[in-house]
């Protein structure tokens, strides 16, 4: 029987923790398209960065597999958003809660998907375990989001935390079935 792919997109600004989020929950080792960072302003944050997409996989039954696709964080790769947005069932937008500079980019990503692929989405406020993290409520305001959008605390290295974000997204999806 041919495999049917169900797609959830994990997006967010550079170094928000998208690859880690997928790594934490995927049943397979995440398929990465990472290269060494060379650009100033990027290489100070991390050594490797996604350039096409990452994906993780969770087998649901003999017929269906859930794919988690991670988008590249830098805006120069935003042509990938279109490719990944088509056919998705839901979207998780991650932000680095300790770095308000990334909130603008997260807003840009939300604006893009909301204007073109308005699937159910949630925001994961990553790095909530670190000093200097903004609260999810303040991040909601900073991103111009209303109370109807779920803005959730997240520590992307913690499996329970990642599961919680995905389960809330699935609850949101359920409202539109």
């Amino acid at each position: 029987m041919a495999e049917k792919k169900i797609k959830i997109v994990i997006s967010g600004p550079y170094a928000a923790g998208k690859t880690q989020f997928i790594n934490t929950i995927s049943e397979i080792e995440t398929v990465k398209t990472e290269v060494k960072t060379t650009r100033s302003g990027e290489k100070e944050k991390k050594d490797y960065t996604t350039v096409a997409m990452d994906f993780g996989r969770i087998k649901i039954d003999d017929e269906h597999t859930l794919y988690l696709f991670g988008t590249p964080g830098q805006s120069r790769f935003d042509f990938m958003w279109d490719i990944l947005g088509k056919g998705m069932v839901g979207l998780v937008v991650l932000v680095d809660s300790t770095d308000p500079a990334t909130f603008h980019e997260a807003r840009r990503i939300i604006n893009y998907f909301e204007s073109r692929y308005p699937a159910p989405f949630v925001v994961g406020c990553n790095k909530q375990d670190l000093k200097g993290a903004w609260s999810p409520d303040d991040i909601r305001t900073a991103l111009d989001l209303g109370e109807e959008i779920k803005v959730l605390p997240l520590v992307s290295v913690d499996k329970q935390s990642v599961k919680n974000v995905l389960l809330v997204l699935l609850d949101e999806i359920a409202k539109y079935i």
């Binding site: 069932v89 308005p118 599961k163 995905l166 699935l170």
Partner: peptide, 26 residues
């Protein structure tokens, strides 16, 4: 505030429940 949202897959409630059960069990 969007009243409708687009789901790019023919997702049934039964299949969604399966996904939820799978994620909970991971």
């Amino acid at each position: 505030r969007k009243k409708e949202r687009r789901i790019g897959f023919d997702l049934t409630r039964g299949l969604l429940n399966k996904i939820i059960a799978k994620i909970k069990g991971l």
